[in-house]
Simulated assay, not measured.
Amino acid sequence: MQDLQEILLLARSISWEAAGILRSYYHKNYNSLEVQYKDSDPVTVADLAVNHYILEKLQAALGNENFVYISEETYKEAQSKQLNSAWTWIIDPLDGTRDFIEKTGEYAIHIALVKNHRPVLATVAVPEAEKLYYATKGGGAFVETSDGKSTALKVSPRDRIEELTLVVSRSHRNERLNYLLQNLPCQNQKSVGSVGCKIATIVEQQADIYISLSGKSAPKDWDMAAPELILTEAGGKFTHFDLTPLHYNTGDISQWGGLLASNGQFHEILCQDAQRILKEWEKNKF
């Protein structure tokens, strides 16, 4: 097993190259990105190209002996090996495909290394911002710009609950989530696509809270693993509403229930509020 910092250098290099590949697709004048749909979610030729690149580079450098590789595009092929490995790469080659297609610029690339179901290394590349966020467990979180400069990240110190800002989705909304958001004590909102980009706004101190609420479907391991580590290493918190940690490579790729990411201020109170408000919604609904 290579040193974690050496593996981080590899992951950062691959992330920058992958960001360049996505940008090349994003800025070409395609009439069509050959959008297909898998389980109602869009997939483009760009997703597939970057997925192939990341896997090829990681496997060429690290092999398959010590690692399992789970990516959004290929996880079904790896399912039989997943639970037998302590070390697992969890990859989202294009987080925010709808934003990529709609040209909002708010898309990202997630790469996380998980040990015993918890992330220990993460990169989140935001190609249009030309930024790369990265972290290792216990090593802090940083943002690197295209000129090679890295800066340590720290979540905001905002400590008045009514002044906290929620970062929310434009598209993944429903009546239940809207009711929850409308009844929280903090009402400032900022709309951003891609989970990676949402967490980037929190570690850049532009927002403070992100809430994910599963319904008929749920976010997947590759949506959360890399952003979670970057947020927590920047001083934030990321848990289920009942304050239990997220676990990855458990045999179920979905992260069911309510998840709350925050700058750490009022995290427990907001989790309690969310559970109370959802119980009210259920009662009022029926």
Rank of each mutant, 00 (worst) to 15 (best):
K76F: 00
S71K: 03
Q36A: 15
L22Q: 04
Y30N: 10
E65R: 14
A86P: 09
L33K: 10
A61W: 03
N64E: 13
Y30T: 05
A86E: 00
Y30I: 06
F67S: 04
T74A: 12
N31M: 12
Y53F: 15
K38F: 13
T74E: 10
Y26P: 07
K38E: 12
T74F: 04
Q59Y: 02
A61N: 10
A86W: 01
K76N: 10
A49P: 05
A46V: 02
V50L: 02
L83D: 03
K81R: 14
H52D: 11
N64V: 09
Q59N: 10
V50E: 00
L33N: 07
A86C: 04
D41T: 14
S40E: 04
E65G: 08
Y26K: 08
Y53S: 00
N29C: 03
E73N: 06
E56S: 14
K57E: 09
K81A: 08
V35Y: 05
E65A: 14
G63C: 09
I54M: 03
Y69P: 01
N51F: 02
P42L: 03
A78Y: 05
E72Q: 09
R23A: 13
L58G: 05
S80G: 12
R23Q: 15
Y69W: 07
A86Y: 00
I70V: 15
E34I: 07
Y26L: 05
T74I: 02
L55T: 05
V50C: 07
A46I: 06
Y69T: 01
N84K: 15
D39Q: 11
K28Q: 12
I54R: 01
A78D: 08
N64Y: 13
T44R: 00
N29W: 04
A61G: 08
K81C: 08
S32Q: 11
S71L: 05
Y30S: 11
N31W: 10
D47Q: 03
A86I: 00
L22V: 09
Y53A: 07
S80M: 07
Q36K: 15
V45R: 11
L62D: 06
E56P: 00
S40M: 07
E72L: 02
H52S: 11
Q82L: 13
L55D: 00
A46E: 00
Y25L: 02
